[in-house]
Amino acid sequence: MGQKGIVTEAIDNAISQGQVKVDGALWSARSEDGQPIAENTVVVVRRLDGIKAIVKRKEQ
């Protein structure tokens, strides 16, 4: 938790889509607040839900 990652496939909870790369590993991902997150966005892992990383946009 708390690790930074990069979105490699746009995250869209509505269609169960999204992937992030964290520390060299790819994870399925969903956004914590339910909002879509674009590819190449830097995110922070908030928690794991099974095999999915729950992420939020990294604050500037």
Rank of each mutant, 00 (worst) to 15 (best):
A14N: 09
A38L: 06
A10I: 01
V42S: 02
K52H: 14
L26C: 08
W27S: 08
V20M: 06
K4W: 03
G2T: 10
E39K: 00
K21S: 10
G50L: 04
D12V: 10
G2I: 11
Q35C: 00
W27L: 07
E32Y: 14
D33R: 06
A14H: 08
L48P: 13
A38S: 03
I51W: 14
G5R: 06
W27A: 05
I11R: 03
D12I: 04
I11D: 00
E9A: 10
I11H: 01
W27E: 07
A38G: 02
A14P: 02
Q60C: 07
G5D: 02
V42L: 07
S31V: 00
R47G: 13
S31K: 01
V55R: 03
E9T: 07
Q3H: 14
T41R: 02
S31M: 02
R47T: 14
I6L: 08
R46P: 07
D33V: 10
V20E: 00
I51L: 13
I15C: 03
V7E: 01
Q3V: 08
T41M: 02
R30L: 12
D49T: 12
A29V: 09
K52W: 12
I11F: 05
N13A: 10
I37P: 00
E39A: 00
A25K: 15
I11Q: 06
S31N: 10
I11L: 05
A14F: 13
Q17I: 02
G5I: 06
K52G: 11
S31G: 05
P36C: 02
A29D: 10
Q19A: 04
K4H: 13
M1Q: 14
V22G: 01
V44R: 13
A10V: 03
W27G: 09
R46V: 15
G2K: 13
V42K: 05
I37R: 00
E59W: 04
A53N: 09
D23P: 11
Q60A: 13
V7K: 00
L48E: 15
A10M: 01
G50F: 09
E39V: 08
G5M: 07
I51Y: 15
Q19L: 05
I37H: 02
S31F: 06
I15V: 15
L48C: 14
N13D: 14
W27Q: 08
L26Y: 13
A38W: 03
K52Y: 13
K58V: 03
T8G: 01
Q19C: 05
N13E: 05
R57K: 15
Q60Y: 09
K21I: 10
G18I: 02
E32L: 13
I54S: 11
S31A: 02
